[in-house]
Design a binder for these strands. Sequence first.
DNA 1: CACTTTTCCGCAAACGTTTGCAGAAAAAGC
DNA 2: GCTTTTTCTGCAAACGTTTGCGGAAAAGTG
Lengths: 333, 333
Amino acid sequence: MKHATIIDIAKKLRISPSTVSRALSNHPDIKLETKERIRRTAKAMLYSPNPIAKSLKISQTTTIGVIVPEIKHDFFSSAISGMEEVAYRSGYTIILCQSNENFERERINVETMIHHRVAGVIVSITQQTKRGTHFQDLLKRKIPLVFFDRVPGGVRASKVVINDYQSAFDAVSYLIGRGYKKIAHFGGPRELDICVQRWNGYIDAMKKQRLPVLKEFVRTGGLQEQNGYLSMDALIREHKIPDAVFAVNDPVAVGAFQRIGEAGLRIPGDIAIMGFSNNRITGLVDPPLTTVDQPSFLMGSTAAEILIETIEKRVTAPKTVILPAKLIVRGST
Amino acid sequence: MKHATIIDIAKKLRISPSTVSRALSNHPDIKLETKERIRRTAKAMLYSPNPIAKSLKISQTTTIGVIVPEIKHDFFSSAISGMEEVAYRSGYTIILCQSNENFERERINVETMIHHRVAGVIVSITQQTKRGTHFQDLLKRKIPLVFFDRVPGGVRASKVVINDYQSAFDAVSYLIGRGYKKIAHFGGPRELDICVQRWNGYIDAMKKQRLPVLKEFVRTGGLQEQNGYLSMDALIREHKIPDAVFAVNDPVAVGAFQRIGEAGLRIPGDIAIMGFSNNRITGLVDPPLTTVDQPSFLMGSTAAEILIETIEKRVTAPKTVILPAKLIVRGST
DNA sequence: CACTTTTCCGCAAACGTTTGCAGAAAAAGC
DNA sequence: GCTTTTTCTGCAAACGTTTGCGGAAAAGTG
């Protein structure tokens, strides 16, 4: 049960392997009739090219590397799904690594990608990632690179994002419009650009409406559920109860949501709550959470599209795509 | 910015590439001193072996292929996470495909894996998959194969599963113990063994307690949320309201959950509901859903462990691992 | 018909490894 | 000192492609 090779075809037809190779890649040097003959027998022999041999020769593969902080996170898994979809259609395959929110591991993942001679890589960075030096290694080797959602500063690569600042601004403005005044913000790590953007959106919306930004109402932490839980917990212990909470993302919102429930407070009666991303969960809790819809699948698929385009067309100018996000109003506000 | 090769090292040290190769793979033929010298310069030159060249030579890679129906499904993404974890530790990388619950695409995915000369593959099959002929192609090529959760009949390969029959039996027995009598079952496609097992568990638990199994209360459909929604919808329209619903999985349970809520019925007052898998969501809806905890991450990691073991130790006897599932009682029953 | 141009194909090297085999150098045996 | 054994290293082929170059055959030109 061995694979048929170009050489096998050549032998059977008593011609040279190079002719077979050229015929199969539709090289103009080969006569049409010969091409046909070769194609037919190739099909008959169930020939399929050996991608490894080809990769070795041209030192470039047809796989694209994907590095995300956590596969099982709703947002990432559906983004990956989007990537796989366009990769599949374009004849690429995906090799997947997760950094586990760990900078060192992210560095190693990048190395793994380089060793595997991937054609390009798509990354969403770690919460810990401050420097982008390991990404420079990719650029030095001219390996196309696309970031999505979580992008680092100072790396000259394409990006697929939403307008975090504007979305946050709009979201908070909406809260203010509904009459909430003491609005807290549970933000993420300041290293992550998306967190800073959302934070800025919050601040500016408050300022615009001349509402005070109270220090105790602005808390930063991680991006996990527990962080939201703990932030809310702190507020409750300190008896500083806000009108509303604008969380940096859905897990944080859900964490706060749980703590509020445990405290016997009502949503949105006592505290309104707003998330960010439109994870599946937000529509199912009671009351369902108002959130900002982040088109995860679409972000993944566009990231893959841009990547493949740069791989194949050899476009070099980095490109930034800003996808639309939409406020989803539900019962929690 | 080229990669250093074995030849570069050889040249610098004025020895032959073969010696370098052997030294680096710790071959006993090479003198210790020479090995040391080679290792030092290899490190100094930032040498890293070219996996593609090696793969071509030994016609075997160090990547493992993963095929799942849907990446974004909670259960699968966390299983993948588990696989990635052990793959990472063992020096393997993962190439990922999703079949989108489509048989033909699954077949193509398997082919892709073969072309890429993966060292082994892990699969959870499609709802549509009735025949396992495409998996035979893997076995014929002696490519190790491990199924998890959704396993096909008649393919001689390792499997990682839970005891679906017993878990379902226990779950339904628990419902009966709580006093529910008119228990409906929303089952999945009969092609999938797990669905049959859970269905049988349901039937036998009912029979054991001498409860009638009413035809109209046993419905089959897909595994998605909408299927649960529609099944519940049908029951409501026909005015056949059960005491309790045992759903084949969590999405189906959640679908039913939503329809019940829309009908203004209370959970568990009017209808109790029980899911299967312990997806993240089930703990967050209100009331939280009773369900069977299926250790997704663990299933993924053991699948990967078994696979790597068979790859490296060349064990050929297929192995079946049954992981423990646990009933999680929450507010919905 | 003799020359030039075009068309088509094959030779051989290359990509970076691994590995069987041969053989030089060193050590051991007598 | 000479043969035998052991220890170590190198040669060269192989894995399956791609591709620059050269050249034979066919076609075109005068």
